[in-house]
């Protein structure tokens, strides 16, 4: 059974149609990346799938009792609200110390438990958000532009971490990105969105699809696979050859 399934989704805001006729499903253990330019309805789609927004047309089915680990795009914590990391990780469900310490260690920020969220760096903050999502023992991890505000190495490190964590937990991953340079090469499926689904497939198929080229220009050809780390899996041959950052900049 699919974890989340959507059929004929449509949504308008103030008379402007943001999404139409979107059919979508995420299967257990699958990594799906949604890419699209700004205003293409990526975040809206994600929010519809999570049940934050109600669709105007179509319907969303989530597996009953689905455990979702959600990493929001950004989280503004009001300066008036004191919030140590440990307390944040216990919202809304209380977590024991024995759970919190390994969760923080796993995402690479051990020892920040007593720090205030407001004092964390951007990268630490995102990792704490990820730790919070992981504590829910999610069947699906949902990330909305989770690396926004991180620099290039920070971003690559975050994706590497994400891949590790996913390999350990075996959960499905659904993420949204407007940053086409850095789409996780490990994605099983990339969905190119622009109000509707333009094309979808493996990262390579999408990068070569004419619809994708039309949207993002031929310049980004292959750049989809920029972030890769060295796997030694045998399915490696399915992916396009890794492109180095320097080469990529020449193309841009």
């Amino acid at each position: 059974m699919s974890l989340i399934e959507a059929e004929g989704l449509g949504k308008s805001f103030g008379g402007r149609r943001v999404l139409r006729d979107v059919d979508f499903a995420v299967e257990p253990g699958e990594i799906v990346t949604i890419v699209g330019p700004n205003g293409s309805g990526k975040s809206v789609l994600l929010r519809l799938l999570l049940g934050i927004l109600r669709p105007d047309t179509g319907k969303v089915n989530r597996k009953p009792g689905l455990r979702v680990g959600y990493v929001p795009q950004k989280l503004h914590i009001d300066a008036g609200l004191p919030m140590p990391v440990r307390r944040f990780l216990s919202l809304p469900t209380r977590r024991r110390r024995e759970e919190i310490a390994p969760a923080l260690a796993r995402v690479g920020v051990p020892g920040v438990a007593e720090q205030q969220m407001a004092t964390l760096s951007g990268g630490q903050f995102q990792r704490v958000l990820l730790a919070r999502a992981l504590l829910a023992r999610p069947e699906i991890l949902v990330l909305d532009e989770a690396t926004q505000g991180l620099d290039q190495p920070g971003e690559a490190a975050f994706y590497r971490l994400l891949e590790q964590v996913r390999a350990e937990l075996g959960c499905a991953v659904l993420m949204v990105s407007h940053d086409l340079h850095v789409v996780m090469a490990a994605s099983d499926r990339v969905i190119c969105l622009n109000g509707h689904i333009c094309c979808e497939g493996t990262p390579q198929v999408v990068a070569e699809a004419p619809e994708y080229r039309r949207l993002f220009g031929p310049g980004t050809q292959g750049a989809l696979a920029l972030y890769r780390h060295d796997h030694d899996h045998d399915h490696d041959k399915d992916h396009p050859a890794p492109l180095r950052r320097e080469e990529n900049e020449d193309i841009m």
Binding site: V68, P92, T93, R94
Partner: peptide, 19 residues
Amino acid sequence: WSALLTATLSEDLAHASGL
């Protein structure tokens, strides 16, 4: 308390936690 705090932090986060 816990639900109120979560919703105060972020309504999206609260939604995703089933609140």
